[in-house]
Design a protein around this nucleic acid. Structure first.
Lengths: 138, 138
DNA sequence: TGAATAGTGTAGTTAAGGCTACAATTTGAA
DNA sequence: TTCAAATTGTAGCCTTAACTACACTATTCA
């Protein structure tokens, strides 16, 4: 049997871990979309500033995102989002917004809400998200 | 100036990442406390089953937790929590419970709430947590 | 008691995400 | 136009967390 009780029991944790691997992608395409919207183009240095990490880290993550088909870029050139990347960015941003607005609606301070939303957004299922949305529009 | 706008801007992300490094510790001591409560002792194999990972992964994480003073163990012996470990476990469990109950109170299905709570609990600030608690006791 | 089996430990690999140091390219200003 | 500064790339190292394969210890039951 592949579906034993033991496997079922570990499912929530597996889910948690799998989410981790997409968090970075979501954070990055979301940031890129914002930066492009604000300034026209997105460069490694913009992401370096945005995330507060070294340009090396940014470069490597961008390369991975290109492998995954979310962005397109060439050496020493700005980074562009693919259609797929833009779609992911939009979904991520919407989710982020809802979580943030939800925390505000709960009475959390804007600064704290901003920090918590960053961490929480990646772990909110569609169902929970819709509950958040309904609460904001109470 | 060490507190430039750029640094402030990246603060939320830094916070998110720092949280990551303690998530595992919290998950593990929380699981250990439950297992010890339920069965008397906690062994590597119990954590292996609980998290659905290999015993090697568990062993290495337990070694790290021992370095951090959260657990005590010897070769081929059960794992015990230190006072510090027990304190962390209790705090983690309380927070986990509050998040879970909060999601239930919002109307999220128990199964979905269990999954989301796993992911969310590590990213909830004390302030947000108190809002959650207040909402449950509405 | 003395294997089989269950449980742990160890070695070595992979992948992500972090870093510094140094090399290469682009760009902007004198 | 050319050279210095800004930007990006590359090499190489660290840590965490995951794995397989194999070695070792403990336990159990025939």
């Amino acid at each position: 049997m592949t579906t034993s009780k033991k496997l079922d029991r570990s499912d929530p944790h597996r889910r948690t871990r799998r989410d981790h691997s997409t968090e970075t992608a979501e954070d990055y395409v979301e940031a890129m979309a914002e930066i492009i919207e604000r300034s026209g183009t997105c460069r490694v240095v913009d992401l370096t500033k945005h995330f507060g990490v070294s340009h090396v880290t940014v470069t490597r993550i961008v390369a991975r995102l290109q492998d995954e088909g979310l962005v397109v870029t060439e050496k020493y050139r700005p980074i562009e989002l693919t259609t797929q990347g833009r779609r992911l960015a939009q979904r991520s941003r919407q989710r982020h917004e809802i979580v943030y607005e939800f925390l505000l609606a709960l009475g959390v301070d804007p600064k704290v809400a901003a920090i918590d939303a960053e961490g929480i957004e990646h772990h909110v299922s569609p169902q929970t998200l819709s509950k958040f949305k309904a609460f904001v529009q109470r």
